[in-house]
């Protein structure tokens, strides 16, 4: 489909939706409150679909994608030892997330790779069965540490893959989709071996349409701590909370605190 055809199609879709909205309008006057609400809901969401036609990036035509090949494989794997299921799920979902933002199907995604005590098996990386939870209790065992490094590296690669896709897509305003996105990655725990909650790893990317300044820097908020880290250390939750306040403010929610964190956003993150 050429760009001209895409524009023509978009105009046509809008006039079709408008015709449907017109029919709803004429039916609505007759209804009781409860029934009217039901129909209003359809109208509201048709308008949301109509609006989304305007917000679709120009870099690709947001037609419904083909069913991912991987999902067929996943179906076959149901009920079987899931040696590669994490890998395939993640690949498919990364693709889907990038597509969903590019096509403005949604404005918000949370993605959890594994739950708190996830035993996702990384056999596909390590070669033998390697459940994540047990591996993270490495107790300085060199083999487990090597495996954990491979797992962590693979996880970050998936993120890089996602961010790369967002960076390669053009949004409706001509910016990259990544530029118009806030990306926030963390874990529920800093070190799986010791269960500590200070010194939390946080990775941020995207510029929130220019409001955030997170590119390229590694900021250490607990510089006084030397390796090996002590079991109980300086509280970094203050900074974690302030990072989240920064995200809120970048999205126009002018809240100054989050959890126990006071002090407003982290100034080095803000571009406002």
């Amino acid at each position: 489909m050429t760009d001209t055809q895409a524009e023509q199609r978009k105009a046509e879709q809008k006039s079709v939706l408008n015709a449907v909205l017109g029919e709803i309008q004429s039916l609505n006057v007759k209804l009781s409150k409860t029934d009217k609400d039901k129909l209003d809901e359809y109208a509201t969401n048709l308008r949301a679909v109509e609006d989304s036609l305007d917000n679709i990036g120009t870099g690709r035509v947001c037609e419904k994608p083909m069913r991912p090949e991987a999902s067929e494989a996943l179906n076959q794997e149901r009920g079987v030892t899931p040696t590669t299921i994490v890998q395939k799920h993640t690949e498919v979902l990364v693709e889907l997330m990038a597509l969903a933002f590019t096509c403005d199907i949604t404005r918000c995604i949370t993605f959890m790779l594994g739950n708190g005590t996830s035993n996702n098996d990384y056999q596909f990386l390590i070669g033998s069965s390697t459940p994540h939870h047990g591996t993270s209790h490495h107790q300085e065992n060199a083999g487990k540490l090597t495996s954990l490094t491979k797992i962590d590296t693979w996880e970050i690669q998936q993120i890089a893959n996602l961010l790369g896709k967002l960076d390669a897509s053009t949004d409706a305003d001509g910016q990259t989709v990544l530029d118009n996105t806030t990306f926030y990655m963390s874990s529920d725990i800093a070190d799986g071996n010791t269960h500590n909650h200070y010194d939390m790893p946080i990775l941020m990317a995207g510029r929130a349409g220019g409001k955030l300044n997170v590119d390229g820097a590694h900021v250490n908020y607990t510089p006084a701590l030397k390796f090996p880290r002590p079991l109980i250390g300086e509280r970094s939750d203050v900074h974690t909370g302030r990072a989240l306040v920064s995200v809120l403010q970048a999205h126009g929610i002018m809240q100054d605190t989050f959890g126990e964190a006071t002090g407003g956003p982290l100034p080095e993150l803000m571009n406002i």
Partner: peptide, 19 residues
């Protein structure tokens, strides 16, 4: 902003007991 999208990606090892 035309587009303000937020993405939270939570991963890594964790040992919080949940049941």
């Amino acid at each position: 902003m035309l587009n303000a999208k937020a993405l939270k990606f939570s991963s890594l090892a964790s040992l919080v007991a949940a049941g």
